[in-house]
Structure formats: C-alpha cells, structure tokens
C-alpha cells in the first residue's frame, strides 16, 4: 500500500534521512522505533509532503506521491497524526473533528462523530469545550479522532505516547489496538518500544537516518540487542501485561 524507496531528507545540508526504504501492506500495523533525533518525524513528514525530499520515491496505492502537496496526500487517505498532537486549541473538540473531514473530498466517510465518540467517550463529553482546555491524553485522542474523520486508508502516528502518564499511554495503545482490529493500516512511530512492539505486526529500527533492523515485532521484542537499547531490563519485567 505504501512504498518508500531510498528516501533522503536534508535540513540545510544536514542529512536527517539517509536512504530509507520500507513498505506497508494493507491491513498491517508497522512500528518504527528509534531514539530521539533518529529521523522518525522527518520520515513521516517527508511521506506526508511537509518536508522536501532530497532523494527517493514515495508511492501510495501505486500512485507516485513523491512531489505531492501535504493536502493532496491527506486527500488520498494517507493521514498523519503529528507529534505533539497539534490540535487546534481555539476550536471546540467537535470542530476539530469536523475539520478532519476536509481530507475526505469526494471519498465516502469511514468514521463519523459517533464512531469516534464510541472509541473515545471523553470526547463526546467534552465536545463543546475548546481543544486547548483538554489534557494531553485527551488531545491525543482528539488528534487521532480528527484523522479518523478524514477516512484514513493508512494512518501515520508520530509518537502518540509522548509526554503522557503511563495510565494514559496504555489507554491510547488500547485504542490503537482497537483501530488495528478494524483492519486499519497503521504506521506507528514510537520511542515507547515496548508498547509499539506489542501492538504491531512488524517493526523497523531507525537510527541516525538509517533502518538498522527490521523483523516481526514478536521477534524484535525478544532480541537481546533491542532489549538492551530500547526495552531495558527493569522495564521488561515491570510491564508484562
């Protein structure tokens, strides 16, 4: 469904991505893990058309979108939930969600307000409130809901657990597992490797702009090198469930 070939991104000559290739097949959930500054957001933003590509090619559903504008990428149903939520603070929860339907264009909606409220009931309660007054976790739910309103065929998620309390993180990942169960295709970027590996089918490890490992999530979760760098002994025991 998504094919990324040899993608490169530079910021004023400084390379952030050095030839990244990856595929996401329909129905899959793929996790991309890696440390801060590895280039994860750059990858998603290059796919979404927000940052210029220094090289490589991106295709979605067989169509070349390498040079497509961010809004036309979104209009194809390739929707990103950006790092740091980026909800519209001065608009109500409901308006944020309705704005999400912009990406639909002539495509039929796959998620309506009621469906989004069903997975995030707190948003229904707060629907008239300004998005800026929500907690971080609620804003994350809103950002995901907003993307769902755009009828995603592939959902790109950039560190949805960033800065959230552990309890809220678990809630968000439960929602992601629910989305996956509906058959939605997901590319999930995370630093929280444990949760990301638990929810995904496949995973890739990005370090310094390169993919350094990839494999089935279940295998990577038991890989000693991954455990050492990304999971950590203490945590590995603590978070069994």
């Amino acid at each position: 469904m998504l094919e990324v070939q040899d993608l490169a991104v530079s910021y004023r000559g400084i390379r952030a991505l050095r030839g990244v290739s990856l595929n996401v097949a329909a129905g899959e959930t793929v996790a991309l893990i890696g440390p801060n500054g590895a280039g994860k957001s750059s990858l998603l933003n290059a796919i979404s058309g927000l940052v210029a590509k220094a090289g490589g090619r991106v295709a979605f559903d067989g169509a070349d979108i390498t040079r497509a504008s961010p809004w036309s990428v979104a209009a194809r149903g390739l929707l990103q939930v950006p790092e740091g939520r980026q909800v519209f603070p001065g608009m109500s929860v409901q308006e944020n969600l309705l704005l999400g339907t912009t990406a639909l264009g002539a495509r039929p909606a796959t998620w309506g307000l009621d469906e989004v409220f069903a997975i995030f009931p707190i948003l229904r309660e707060r629907r008239a409130q300004l998005a800026g007054s929500l907690s971080g976790g609620q804003q994350q739910m809103l950002a995901i809901g907003r993307a769902l309103m755009g009828g995603p065929r592939l959902l790109l998620l950039d560190e949805p657990s960033l800065g959230l309390a552990p309890l809220i993180v678990r809630q968000v990942f439960r929602a992601l597992a629910g989305l996956k169960a509906t058959g939605l295709t997901i590319l999930l970027v995370e630093q929280n490797a444990r949760q990301a590996l638990a929810v995904s089918d496949r995973a890739l490890v990005l370090e310094q702009g390169r993919i350094v490992r990839q494999g089935a999530s279940a295998d990577l979760a038991h890989d000693p090198a991954i455990i050492a760098s990304y999971l950590g002994q203490d945590e590995a025991h603590a978070g069994g469930g």
Binding site: S48, L50, S69, P70, W71, A74, A75, L79, Q80, P82, Q86, V87, F88, P89, G90, M91, E95, L98, L99, G100, T102, A103, L104, G105, R146, A147, G150
Partner: peptide, 24 residues
Amino acid sequence: TPWGRRIRAVTENARAAMLTGVNP
C-alpha cells in the same frame, strides 16, 4: 461554515491544517 473553520485552522496552525487536507 466549513470554509471559515478552515480559515481558523490555518490561522492557528497551518502545518496541522495541511495534514487534515486543507489547502492553505
């Protein structure tokens, strides 16, 4: 109106608005 909503969205955060399919 939906058009006005897009105006406010671009006013608040043009990048995020683009990701929701708004052509600024």
